[in-house]
Design a protein around this nucleic acid. Structure first.
Lengths: 333, 333
DNA sequence: TTTAAGAATTGACACGATTCAATTGCAGAG
DNA sequence: CTCTGCAATTGAATCGTGTCAATTCTTAAA
């Protein structure tokens, strides 16, 4: 098998402590010894055993990233940001998909504990108080991703989803729409709950009537299904706002298939502003979130928390969403 | 700090050996003791330290996944497959984006070695002989992902890109197209080279003339740029085949902006069949690859290689691409 | 030549789980 | 009551590295 520290020490005629010093604190070793040991290391092709090293030091250079689903382009972008930022600081990233299941989330957290990650970046799958005490007790830093926390004892990086909901309704209202369908997922998802709050608040002010269409999963297929429910409403809305772009794509498809024109017959607004919005059948207006930036910021925050553990001041960073107007929203006829 | 094996043993009133047995060979422990120890484990929230375990056993339960870019929906799907399959066998996955740079690829491989991964799944960023001897020497299994190998000493899971290129041209030729533009990235990318080979072979048989338009990066923006080059050709092709769907989306946008109708004026065919093809301005015909399945298969193969190292028979699995016809390709007028 | 201070080196112990030879406990046979 | 055999449990040794108090070596000053 491969050589270990002891082998190198024996071969070079020094003690294991000296070899260890050669590796970790070369300045305390005499030049002559240093050279001899380094030569021996090269000769034996010695590579320090990472397990032993990490066991001893207690720290790894890894973080865990737990998102509902990387296949969602929004989270793909976030993941890219996390990965780039982590890599820049020589951290490796474990990727975990929770599929919005608490059970899976917990399973992954336990795996991450086993792997002794230094920190965890997580988009929680439900709105309960996200204490993650079991992680903290083990000295694993936790930062919330795309989720706000009221709790000042942890970092979070989020986008103002309430504001996002408001912007959307303000935009549609300013185009003259007074009946709007709000197509979205379960309120247990924090982002959904916030966007709904924003929608309702802005609707009240703008005197807009909201019909909520609830779907179980926020993907394209369920968007197409939702169209049936929209068409079954007693009064057809003149605008539709979707909880994310995937849903909006599905809705768009359903509407076009039903012969309904966008934006002439109905305006359609998405959320996330994923890259394909541009290329859609009708270029999709959307609420844009700085996904990549979110990932980068979160990773940097988490790693800085890991490395300066005692003197770390928790931060709650909140980005602002932005309206991106394309062709799918227009003035009400 | 967090509890260790000794703490559990003390609390449960048994020896460390017994606790270890509870975890690893529950069958040799008496039911009564088993239950008591498990209760204690739950109570203390004990999670075994992966480093210590790995130091002793010599193996980790982690693999590395190196892809050009997860933000490419094809690789996102692959990554999901890898992650699901790995998780099912209790492996954790390191995510690495090489951005098609050899330098980054090597940097990540070195990080993965440091992390002592058990195996690596990689989509190489150039077509050189992919030996990865430095990994093998360290006992790290390597399997190629979305790349074929002639080398029988490693596993690979790929899609028949030559055939994919053929299918594309055969399809377009059968629709009556005789002048086709082939818009693609650098030939140093193995997949590109293979698809080009298939394109050329099929073109020769079908007596089709191919104009190759080369772009540096296979993304949407460069697709739009490529349209200028297409329009500058001495003879306008009646069909355009793109190296991937992202490129095709860009080309579609460029064509539509130029007032060119799809598929009336020109047929457009993509590659990868990403989920958004459906929702595009003109639903995009494409060559479909079983991305998720590719990821699942590769992960299973790699893990089985890791675990039965001596008796492992290397396999080269090749999936077949498939034509998915939507609205963007039609008979030549 | 002696001495003191600083530099260099040593080696036992710790990290936490696994392993396995040795020990204990227990039931049934004689 | 003793003995045998099996099941259950024990705990010391081990994996390879980092740490640090203790020791040895070196050098320059007296």
């Amino acid at each position: 098998m491969s050589a270990n520290l002891r082998d190198v020490a024996r071969q070079a005629g020094v003690s294991v402590g000296t070899v260890s010093n050669v590796l970790n604190r070369p300045d305390v070793v005499s030049p002559k010894t240093l050279e001899r040991v380094q030569k021996t290391i090269a000769q034996l092709g010695f590579v320090p055993n990472g397990f032993a090293r990490q066991l001893r030091s207690g720290y790894s250079r890894t973080i865990g990233l737990v998102v509902p689903d990387v296949a969602n382009p929004f989270f793909t972008e976030v993941a890219r940001g996390v990965e780039d930022a982590a890599s820049k600081r020589d951290y490796a990233v474990f990727l975990c998909n929770s599929d919005e299941s608490l059970e899976k989330e917990n399973k992954y957290l336990s795996v991450l504990i086993q792997q002794q990650v230094r920190g965890v970046l997580i988009t929680p799958s439900d709105s309960k108080s996200h204490q993650y005490e079991n992680l903290r007790e083990r000295g694993i830093s936790v930062a919330l991703l795309d989720t706000e926390t009221k709790n000042a004892s942890q970092c979070s990086v989020s986008v103002d989803d309430v504001r996002g909901g408001e912007i959307a309704i303000e935009h549609l209202a300013s185009l003259g729409h007074r009946e709007i369908a709000w197509v979205t997922g379960p309120e247990t998802i924090p982002q959904v709950a916030d966007r709904t709050a924003g929608v309702m608040r802005a609707a009240k002010i703008a005197k807009v009537e909201i019909s909520t269409i609830r779907v179980a999963l926020m993907n394209s297929a369920q968007g197409t299904d939702a169209v049936k429910k929209i068409l079954a409403l007693k009064k057809m809305p003149s605008a539709i706002f979707c909880g994310n772009d995937l849903l909006a794509f599905g809705v768009m498809r359903g509407l076009l298939d039903a012969g309904i024109k966008i934006p002439e017959d109905v305006s359609l607004l998405g959320y996330d502003d994923i890259a394909f919005g541009n290329s859609a059948a009708v270029p999709l207006s959307s609420i844009s979130q700085p996904a990549y930036q979110l990932g980068v910021t979160a990773a940097e925050l988490l790693i800085s928390e890991c490395e300066e553990n005692e003197v770390h001041a928790h931060q709650q960073i909140k980005f602002q969403p932005q309206l991106v107007m394309r062709a799918s929203t227009a003035t009400k006829k």
